[in-house]
């Protein structure tokens, strides 16, 4: 019998890669750890980018934020590609069955014309904002430092595309797949005075150079306000006005926001806790973008929910900021 010999010699010679051992100790590392820590190139880049010759590839100076160790972060959801797509596939499955139910039961027809119009005017144009959010988060992937940071930005970026597509599908459910609702919503986005603030804000974020400032302007400030305003307050308003079936169509966004916020909060907190320099820098960005966002969102908040809607959302934002140490 050779079994005994085999078990004796099949002992592993090491438990994980050296870089994960140095970071987490001499024990088997998790799949999240092996897939996320210390795998990005850091040294000896050969050529300066033609598109930004004053920096190197993977240059840490593409943000004013300074971290001694860019791997100080941890995604509380521990998403690497495999866990990420499986989490989203699960959410997607529920969403698909909600949308199928809504369609099959003709629930759009049960909504009043007024409610439908309101959804098309106040909610559907957000698909364009989501495309901006997609671009902003992908920018953070492209120019950010360390996999543990950049991968989460890409997941966020792709999620935003997904959300833009679900918002579009809500429009299609409401217009019988004619695309009219989407055309109307786009017209609102382009010309309706209620939307011009948010569109201006979005376009302004698309020219920010510092990727961490993009994160603050988009994921921290704007998303907190918009998701509270639209997927909590607007949802309530519509329900009160007899449009409760909308809820099943925006469950994805609500669940997603809960999930994503855990990562946003953790990322913010780690950065702020690193140094007074970071704290002051971020405080400045937050103040700047919050002021713009509140002003730019106010007209939309008013038609979607009512007068005090923005201040209610600002309260939510302030709570999150306080939790992160700001």
């Amino acid at each position: 019998m050779t079994i005994e010999i085999k078990t004796a010699t099949l002992e592993p010679i090491r438990h994980t890669f050296e870089h994960t051992r140095r970071r987490f100790g001499d024990k088997p590392a998790s799949r999240y750890q092996e897939a996320s820590y210390d795998i990005a190139p850091e040294n000896n880049f050969h050529y300066r980018p033609m598109w930004q010759p004053d920096k190197l590839l993977n240059d840490t100076s593409r943000t004013a934020v300074v971290m001694e160790d860019w791997y100080a972060y941890r995604d509380p959801r521990q998403y690497y590609y495999g866990t990420y797509v499986q989490a989203r596939a699960k959410l997607q499955e529920v969403t698909e069955s909600n949308y199928a139910f809504f369609d099959k039961r003709g629930l759009a027809g049960r909504m009043s014309e007024e409610i439908r119009e309101k959804i098309i005017r106040c909610l559907i144009p957000l698909r364009h904002m989501e495309l901006g959010a997609n671009m902003n988060n992908v920018l953070c992937t492209a120019y950010g430092t360390s996999t543990v940071v950049t991968q989460a930005f890409l997941y966020n970026g792709m999620d935003r595309l997904g959300i833009a597509q679900y918002l579009s599908r809500i429009g299609l459910l409401l217009d019988g797949n004619s695309g009219e609702a989407l055309a109307q919503a786009k017209e609102h986005w382009m010309t309706d005075s209620a939307w011009q603030g948010l569109r201006r804000y979005t376009e302004n974020t698309l020219v920010i150079e510092d990727w961490f400032e993009v994160f603050i302007a988009q994921d921290v400030v704007l998303d907190t306000l918009v998701y509270d305003l639209m997927y909590r307050q607007f949802d309530q308003t519509i329900t009160e006005q007899g449009g409760s079936d909308l809820a099943m169509l925006i469950e994805f966004m609500q669940e997603w926001h809960k999930d994503n916020s855990r990562w946003v909060d953790a990322t913010l907190k780690t950065t702020v806790a690193e140094s007074e320099h970071n704290r002051e820098l971020i405080r400045g960005w937050v103040a700047d973008w919050q002021e713009k966002a509140v002003a730019d969102l106010a007209p939309l908040a008013e038609i979607a929910v009512g007068e005090d809607a923005v201040s209610a959302s600002v309260e939510v934002l302030n709570k999150r900021l306080a939790k992160a140490g700001l």
Binding site: G109, Q165, S168, L172, L173, G176
Partner: peptide
């Protein structure tokens, strides 16, 4: 309301391509 089925091409056009807008700010 009877929803006409969207084919892949239309779906992609409406769900991805149509998200773009012309910037003015």
């Amino acid at each position: 309301m009877s929803n006409r089925k969207l084919n892949l091409k239309d779906k992609y056009r409406l769900l991805t391509r149509d998200l773009e807008w012309e910037y003015s700010y």
